[in-house]
Design a protein around this nucleic acid. Sequence first.
DNA 1: GAAAAAACCTGCGAAAATGCAGGTTTGATT
DNA 2: AATCAAACCTGCATTTTCGCAGGTTTTTTC
Lengths: 234, 234
Amino acid sequence: MKNRITCHECKNEKCFVKQGCFGEWLNKISTNKFQHWYKKGDYIFREGEPIYGINFIQQGGVKVVTTSLHGREQIVRLAKEGEILGHRGLGRTAYYFNAVALMDSLLCFVENELFYEACMNCPKFAFNLIFFYASELRRAELRVKYQAQMNIREKVAMAFIYSYEAFGMNPETKMLNISLSRQDIADIAGTTAEQITRQLNDFENEKLIARNKRDIIFLNIKGLEDIVGDYKIE
Amino acid sequence: MKNRITCHECKNEKCFVKQGCFGEWLNKISTNKFQHWYKKGDYIFREGEPIYGINFIQQGGVKVVTTSLHGREQIVRLAKEGEILGHRGLGRTAYYFNAVALMDSLLCFVENELFYEACMNCPKFAFNLIFFYASELRRAELRVKYQAQMNIREKVAMAFIYSYEAFGMNPETKMLNISLSRQDIADIAGTTAEQITRQLNDFENEKLIARNKRDIIFLNIKGLEDIVGDYKIE
DNA sequence: GAAAAAACCTGCGAAAATGCAGGTTTGATT
DNA sequence: AATCAAACCTGCATTTTCGCAGGTTTTTTC
């Protein structure tokens, strides 16, 4: 709750709240929201926990991940500052997935009642939300197809493209703006950490990617996109 | 447009329109909606076509399918009477998937403007829609995990469970209430038609399923659920 | 900065899934 | 009822993916 940032001060212009709520309702959310810092690796919520409200990422990055099965997890989404978190649970009482901070992150939390009231009273807020869901649904269903049809090479290329789109890269060093372990990348791609290493070798030989210690350096994003070129990327 | 069924006569009590719109707005939709029969195999919409409105299935069954790639498609959803169709395109101008009638089907079509107005003026309608999206998103993301982690046996079992949940079975004959080709099942499961045949052999030997010509007979649904038991089904 | 722990790399055999080809059954048409 | 086309079944070789095990590098801890 310390270092409190009001919605008016907040620089995330794409945040749903700033996009859809105005005047009285922006004030209400701004004064009634809770803020909390999570350290890298902290769980923001876990599957099965009760849902008291909804989160917005003020700073940082988060992975949404299924519970482990046969030793494997699946990363369902990467989210960064300005994005909403926990929206899958709307209308439900318990979370279905886990959310883990990928770096130190500051989250804004709005309780259910206030959120529902804002939906009812700010049509633009509700509408943006519906559009957002439609877009997320489309992307998730595309990913079903990717997992079903892509080979490992394509899946790994897609995992890097996805990470790049989610977090971007440092324009000078061309390094991915987040630290992902081989296992994290495997959990995005839907394969094993060993396969990620093997594909990294290939991509390095093809001058698509370089490695510096554990960091990924993007040499040729277009080249990666060409690998998955037959599939729709949006 | 012939055989017109008004919303008041309609027996699909779970339809979003009947659940969320009342009085004046139910009348407006009822009188302004279009109805159209599609024959088995007809395309209801195709990827890339402009979106003029949204569909509700009055009778019949539909598959939503990605465009073919390397000779493979992916069935993204099965939908039957009472369900909404085309909601992925909200806020967009062109469809992202194809919808094909699996049997002769009657669809109700509501144009964009009327639909948007109803959203704005019937809060329950908009709210139900948001909850529906949240639920669909959750299910789609679970399917990403299934495609990434399940083996063929589990995927095929899941495809039968999904078909059963989507369309049900005849209580006397225990036959699936829809005719799906091996290729259709493969496109749900995310594998090839040959694998479906092979798994059908196994399931038949295990007395989980029987075959009558090309129809599937469910002998032991619990047994199928046990195969995917480690995975969350919801 | 040394020691310990964690993450990463790589070769290889095993397992799983695929794709083809040829034969069989089913359903539609006349 | 005969014919034809489509859908289905099945064996087998090939390809792809996996998972272990042991060694190496990087990061963390004290």
